[in-house]
């Protein structure tokens, strides 16, 4: 079972969206003034939507070392500070949200398997609801999803560090199943990544 550290910015309801299960055990770390978590016991660092990117910048070197030890990061938020190795999110409002559509890109590990892209493209008929801005992706990282203008929206990076990173341009991902309902695209993409972490090591370590 993966041990994951879930970074909490003290927002209402976060723990409802990341529920420990047969693949992942979540430990929540609440950000405080002296935020400096020990990452070594964990396999996965989860930085969810609504996170504190001032605090994350303070521990950027620890995150880099964590990844270089072959560990993994999910950041599904707008990382406006430069703490994610090799990649940078930037906000942009120069395109109309009604024109936003996502297209699948390079997917060597099947992270888009069983993913209904229209769930990300539309919510109650509205488009442009999921992500904002785009990611300046590391050269040679896999762009899993690009938007209408071919800008990276979801990225798998196995090249910038010795670990793995799944990044979205602020599009939320969650790990929760509701009884009687099939998993949403937000769960499917996340759990496909968790399954990858659970079943294979990073190629660079092979």
């Amino acid at each position: 079972m993966l041990q994951a550290l879930l970074i909490s910015n003290g927002l209402v309801g976060l723990n409802k969206y990341y529920v420990s299960n047969e693949l992942v055990q979540y430990t929540t770390c609440l950000i405080t003034k002296d935020f400096n978590p020990d990452l070594t016991p964990y396999d996965l660092l989860v930085v969810p939507n609504g996170s504190d990117h001032v605090a994350m910048l303070k521990i950027k070197n620890h995150v880099r070392a964590f990844l270089d030890a072959g560990k993994a990061l999910v950041c599904c938020d707008g990382f406006f500070t430069a703490w994610v190795p090799g990649n940078q999110w930037v906000m942009d409002n120069s395109r109309r949200t009604q024109d936003v559509r996502y297209a699948a890109g390079t997917d060597r590990h099947g992270l888009l398997q069983n993913l209904d892209l229209d769930e990300l493209n539309f919510s109650h008929g509205m488009s442009g609801w999921w992500a904002c801005g785009y990611i300046q992706a590391a050269p040679d990282a896999d762009v899993l999803l690009a938007d209408t203008w071919q800008r990276p929206i979801a990225v798998l990076d196995e090249v910038s560090t010795a670990g793995r990173m799944l990044l979205t341009a602020s599009g939320p991902l969650v790990d929760v199943t509701y009884a009687g309902l099939s998993d949403s695209a937000l769960v499917t993409l996340y759990r496909n990544f968790i399954w990858l972490l659970s079943t294979s090591i990073v190629p660079a370590h092979g």
């Binding site: 950000i31 935020f35 609504g50 938020d77 707008g78």
Partner: peptide, 28 residues
């Protein structure tokens, strides 16, 4: 008052508003 959330940052640093708003990091 700002706890490192990107939407707060995007609004307060937008050219239209940035001369009027000062980001105050809540932990400081």
């Amino acid at each position: 008052i700002f706890n490192g959330v990107w939407s707060h940052y995007a609004m307060a640093t937008a050219p239209k508003y940035r001369d009027l708003y000062r980001l105050l990091y809540v932990h400081d």
